[in-house]
Amino acid sequence: MQNDLNDVDRTVVSLKAFVDEVLDQSGLFKFEVCASEALTNLVKHAKTDDTTAPIKIELTETPAAVILRVFDPVGAARFDLRDHAQSLDDVDPLAESGRGLGLIMQCADHADYAPQGDRMCLSLKFSKLETDQ
């Protein structure tokens, strides 16, 4: 994907097409929300000197789940989780931003943001089974 907001929607739609057969209706919705928020977040916040470098995305399937990995550009500063990993209940209803990570946390079955190789990686897991949400 290009490091450009205008490329996010196209990418999300094509990623969703890959998991269309694998996840149920509710799983697909969560996947779409997470993919959209994760990619938007990355384009908006990951500082990089080279905006022409494409963003690396990995989609894998295990027997029980689908895992989406979104990699920060090499050398980009770590995203500050402490300020953003907040519950949607804690966001001011009239705030115009700040819901991205809360949405991801609520929609993904498991989320991790940790170094992988030479860069940070956000990995999101979507269970193929029904969750008790």
Binding site: T40, A95, R99, G100
Partner: peptide, 16 residues
């Protein structure tokens, strides 16, 4: 068919 958090944010901005 789809609204993300930025879309919702824009709507909140309009409301304000």
């Amino acid at each position: 068919s789809f609204v993300d958090s930025s879309g919702l944010g824009a709507l909140v901005g309009v409301l304000k």
